[in-house]
Simulated scan of single mutants.
Amino acid sequence: MTAFAQTAVDEPALVASGAALARAAERGLVVYLQGGLGMGKTTFSRGFIQQLGHCGAVKSPTYTLVEPYELQAYQVFHFDLYRLVDPEELEFIGIRDYFGDFSVCLVEWPERGEGALPSADLVITIDRDEPGRRVGYDARSERGERVMARLRAQPDG
């Protein structure tokens, strides 16, 4: 599958990367966000969610596991599974109800929900790359390939 990377030298650039992905997104997209603590997964998500029209704060759903956003284009569900002890806990929140052709799901710490989550269409890895971050994109499905093609076709892609 297709992969590429870009450098985000500061927080505004990371927000812009998330916004660019939002412009390329489509319904049903499942995005896994990988990277260590403090790498900018929530910052990237903020750019994505605000690009789609959310005007308020975008906070990490570390304690609630999921934060829903009812937006004009589609519903976005932002997951943070960092504090998840057992993937089986996701069944208690009705995890399957969040994923479908009506939504876009952004999942931080997806490895903690392994076995309970659907496969990713796109895996985004954010790593330290002085002086900022390296944002890697890896398509894992046909939907992911379509999104990546639109992302790369953008003037800043």
Rank of each mutant, 00 (worst) to 15 (best):
M1S: 10
A3Y: 03
A5S: 14
Q6Y: 01
Q6I: 12
V9A: 13
L14K: 11
S17T: 08
G18W: 02
L21N: 11
A22D: 01
R23A: 05
A24M: 09
A25P: 04
E26V: 12
E26I: 11
R27H: 12
R27T: 09
V31H: 03
Y32T: 08
G36F: 02
G38P: 09
G40I: 07
T42G: 07
T43S: 12
F44R: 05
F44Y: 06
S45R: 01
S45D: 01
S45Y: 00
F48V: 02
G53M: 08
G56P: 00
G56M: 13
A57G: 13
A57E: 13
K59V: 02
T62Q: 13
Y63L: 03
Y63W: 06
Y63C: 03
T64P: 00
L65V: 06
V66F: 01
E67D: 05
P68F: 02
P68W: 02
P68N: 07
Y69R: 06
E70W: 07
L71I: 11
Q72S: 14
Y74G: 02
Y74N: 03
V76M: 02
V76D: 01
F79L: 12
F79I: 08
D80R: 09
Y82H: 06
Y82A: 05
Y82T: 06
R83H: 08
V85N: 14
P87W: 12
I93A: 06
I95H: 02
R96Y: 00
D97L: 15
Y98P: 12
G100E: 09
D101W: 10
F102G: 13
S103A: 15
S103W: 07
C105V: 11
E108N: 07
E108I: 10
P110E: 05
P110R: 06
P110S: 10
R112G: 03
G113T: 04
G113F: 00
E114A: 15
G115P: 08
S119E: 14
S119F: 01
L122R: 04
V123Q: 10
I124M: 09
I124A: 08
T125D: 05
I126K: 02
D127M: 11
R128N: 12
D129L: 14
R133A: 03
R133H: 04
V135Q: 05
V135W: 00
G136P: 00
Y137Q: 09
D138W: 08
A139E: 04
R140C: 08
S141F: 07
R143M: 11
E145S: 15
E145G: 15
R146D: 07
L151W: 06
R152F: 03
A153H: 11
Q154P: 03
D156L: 14
